[in-house]
Amino acid sequence: MKSFLSLMLGLALVTPLTHVANADEAADRGLAIATDRKQRDAGWNNSESAVTMTLRNAQGEESVRKIRSKSLEVADDGDKGLTIFDEPRDVKGTAFLNFSHIGKPDDQWLYLPALKRVKRIASRNKSGPFMGSEFAYEDMSSFELDKYSFRYLGDETVAGHDCYKVEQTPLDKFSGYTRQVVWLDKDELRVHKIDFYDRKKSLLKTLTLTDHQLYKERYWRAHTATMVNHQTGKSTVLQTEDIRFDTGLTDDDFNQTTLQRAR
């Protein structure tokens, strides 16, 4: 099997960028594409999934974790998420609670069973690594339009998909990214690739999303998410084995009390 870095480098078959008349047009079109992306994914309600997280260091050594994830769509605000670690033993019982928001910083908490306490993740620390992975805490939040400004960059082909290329710039001053470049296919607006640029404006990471599957005849979910850190050579793969929708989750399943009781 090729390394994930090799696969990443071979993904993009680039075609010339479509001409954009001016900055205002690029911003308007970028926002329109992002808005359409968000609207197409509205109404899914709630879901639960089983995920395998594989961490690889620069030498290719692996460690594997088993995770359960619960998500709740919230009207007029960002989504809520609960992530529970089941394996291996040293992380079993660790749980992460995320409240994404529109127009204000997200709320995030981490329960550490060894300490038997809940740790709040401060806004200025959300660029830090999530449980030692190549995903940051801010990557664990839901996609919300008010968190970014947008700019359409053109069209490119990625892994055989004709895609829009859109730059999204985080508005949060504590974000670890100066910008993100997103490739979405024109047919379904599924995200296939995101480049993340650090505070020095250098390419930091690339997220590749593959194996998209359709649920409820409307909602696309990528079953494989591969985050490669170009500066360290490390990578993290999230492999989703199962997703179930409409499982009866409510607000009562997403609070600090349930965080500590998560099993």
Rank of each mutant, 00 (worst) to 15 (best):
T208L: 08
V64Y: 08
R221Y: 07
E73L: 05
Q231T: 11
G233V: 02
Q39G: 04
K126T: 07
K80A: 12
Q108K: 09
V64P: 01
S6D: 09
V91C: 10
S47P: 01
W109L: 11
N46P: 03
D79N: 09
A222P: 06
A27V: 15
F245V: 03
V118L: 15
T247F: 13
P16L: 07
K119Q: 08
M227I: 08
R120A: 11
K201G: 14
L112M: 12
A21N: 14
R218T: 10
G248P: 12
Q260G: 10
L97Q: 05
R261D: 14
F99A: 04
F143H: 04
R40Y: 06
P170R: 06
L184W: 00
D198K: 00
K200T: 11
K205N: 14
V182F: 00
A114S: 11
S100A: 13
L112C: 05
D211P: 04
Y215T: 10
Q213C: 07
N46M: 08
A114T: 15
D106L: 13
L214F: 09
R29Q: 15
T226P: 01
R40P: 00
A26C: 10
Q256K: 12
Q180G: 02
A222I: 06
T54C: 01
S141A: 11
K147T: 15
Y111M: 08
K173C: 09
E48Y: 04
V91Y: 05
G132T: 09
K119Y: 07
Y111E: 01
W220I: 01
T94C: 02
F99T: 04
L153C: 04
I84P: 01
K234H: 14
V158Y: 02
K216D: 07
R89Y: 14
D28K: 12
L97N: 02
I243R: 01
E138L: 02
L189N: 08
R89M: 06
S100D: 07
D211I: 03
K2M: 15
